[in-house]
Every structure is written in C-alpha cells, then in structure tokens.
Design a protein around this nucleic acid. Structure first.
Ligand SMILES: [Mn+2]
Ligand SMILES: [Mn+2]
Ligand SMILES: [Zn+2]
Ligand SMILES: [Zn+2]
Lengths: 139, 139
DNA sequence: TTGTAAAGGAGAATCATTCTTATTTAATAA
DNA sequence: TTATTAAATAAGAATGATTCTCCTTTACAA
C-alpha cells in the first residue's frame, strides 16, 4: 500500500499523522506476517533510527484502538499485530512461530449457522475465530 | 476428585508424587475455572504456605509436559491452566477474564468434516479449537 | 536404611510491556 | 505565515509474569 493511502487511513480515524505512525503501519503491511513490536522496530530502524520502543507500543495501541490493525495472541506470550482486519482465521505453525491468514468464507457460514441454531445459554456471542494448529510443509 | 486419584495420576506418568504437585493439581481441579499460577498459589496457601512461586511454575510445566493439564493463552497475557484435557472449546468473556469450557461434539464433527473436505495446501493440521468471544449474562 | 536423581526454596534475573516526565510536533486558526 | 496548544514522542525507569541459578531437601528404588 502506498504511503499516501496509509496517511489517509490514519487521518480518517482522527489520529495525527506522524512519521512514526506511518512507518509502523507501513511496516505491518509490508512485513505482512503478524509481526511483533520488535519485528516492527527492526523493520523501521533505517527510516526511524531514534524511535523509542515505548512509542512503538503506544502507536500500536492507538492503531488497535481505532480498528486499523488487530492484536493476535499466541502461546509464545509475545503479542503479534495484524494489518488484515476482515474476519478471518489463522494457521499456527507449532514448529516455528509462523502465523498465516486463513480465509474461508464457507467456514464462516458454517459456524454462523451452527451458532445461530445452537444458542449457548447464558452467553451472548460477539465473535469467534478458529485457531488451526499444525505444520507448514515449508518449515 | 479424591487425593488418591490425583496421586495415581501423577505417579502413572512417572513423576514423583510430592505434596506440592498434589496440592497444585488438586487446586486446578477444584478451582475448575482455568486459574492462573497466582490463583493456584492463593488456593493452596493454607496447605502449602512455604511453596515458592517458581515451584508452582515448574510443577505446572511438568504437568503440561505430561499431558495432565493444558495451557490456555488469553489476551490478558497471563497463562491459564486447564485440568480438562479432552478436546473442547472455550467461551471467553470480553468483560471480565472468565473462561468457560464449551463442549460441542456436533461442532467438532462439523469442523472435522469441513477440514477433511477442504484441505489447506502446504499445511498439515494437527488440531484446532474455536475461540468464542462474548459476554456472560451473569457478568 | 541408604544413595541418588529429582524436586523444591529463595531470590536474582529476564524481558515484554507499561508508565512517567520533559520535550517536540502536527494541526488549527488568527 | 506564524502562534497556539493538545497530542505525540523520547528516554529511561518501573512493572510484573515467568524463568533461572544455586543450594538444600525429599521421594523412592535398591
Ligand atoms: Mn491475520
Ligand atoms: Mn477448558
Ligand atoms: Zn513453521
Ligand atoms: Zn465476564
């Protein structure tokens, strides 16, 4: 995604467009694989050599807060960040820490129907996701 | 579950039966709601007033390693522990940190069939779970 | 009962994340 | 364009869950 689009995306949410925010969001989009805060720091260190790690966390929080990105939890304990905000699922590699998007509209329908039919007493569903664990051939 | 059953469960995995291990596993079973290490520490502090927090973590690791319990990750960052090891899903309260078991054999079948039919190229599925987020009426 | 590998206690260390405070800056309006 | 100011950043200290180290204790097999 071009820088101008990124600037617009930030501005449209009423956030100030700062070089740090642009660099971080660009990093998430171009890394494109659920990076950690540290991965992002590494990726932007040429363009933002003096950025504070605390700033990265604060920017990430702001982006999550405004639904520009999503937070992804893993077994490993470190938070990961996701630039793809449509409803989707994840493939988790149990050998390395790779997380790949898994988009499956048929699965979404299947689950939506299932949960519509089978109400859970005492619980109101907001959303759901399938975590698929396994191994990639490439790993 | 009676203490003797717990001692057997530990011994059967080739682990030494120590009062600390028995107390921790008993705590997980009787708390029965995906406690944190700290929840467990609180629960056993009368019977094990001198247990080191590091011991709790080491015992939990050993129990997970031997498939007596399972680790559950959450958004909140703290690890939770689950004494129910059969394949099941979880209901996550987005208001408090409550996690309830969600057992749905029909859902398991649905997903198993779906993933059998729809192979994911380059990925070999080991297992999967549905994370259901929402709110409990009681919260 | 003894020997020994395994387990526990105490507390320091780690490390991802958050917090604090002073300084800088993006956006707005004069 | 410049001045104003609320919001954002830098630096680094603090936090807190978890892990590690080292020494002592214990479960259990012989
Ligand atoms: Mn994703
Ligand atoms: Mn459970
Ligand atoms: Zn992998
Ligand atoms: Zn709740």
């Amino acid at each position: 995604m071009e820088i101008e689009k990124i600037r617009e995306e930030i501005a449209n949410k009423g956030l100030k467009v700062t070089p740090q925010r642009v660099a971080i969001l660009e990093a998430i989009y171009s890394l494109n694989n659920h990076p950690t805060a540290e991965n992002i720091a590494d990726h932007i260190k040429e363009s933002q050599p003096n950025i504070a790690i605390g700033t990265i966390y604060k920017v990430l929080d702001a982006l999550v807060e405004h639904n520009i990105i999503k937070k992804v939890t893993t077994e490993a304990g470190k938070m990961r960040y996701d630039g793809f905000t449509e409803h989707h699922h994840h493939l988790y590699c149990i050998e390395c820490d790779l997380i790949e998007d898994y988009i499956d509209e048929e699965l979404n329908e299947l689950l939506k129907n299932h949960f519509n039919k089978k109400r859970i007493k005492g619980f109101h569903i907001k959303n759901f996701a399938v975590q698929v664990n396994g191994t990639f051939d490439k790993c």
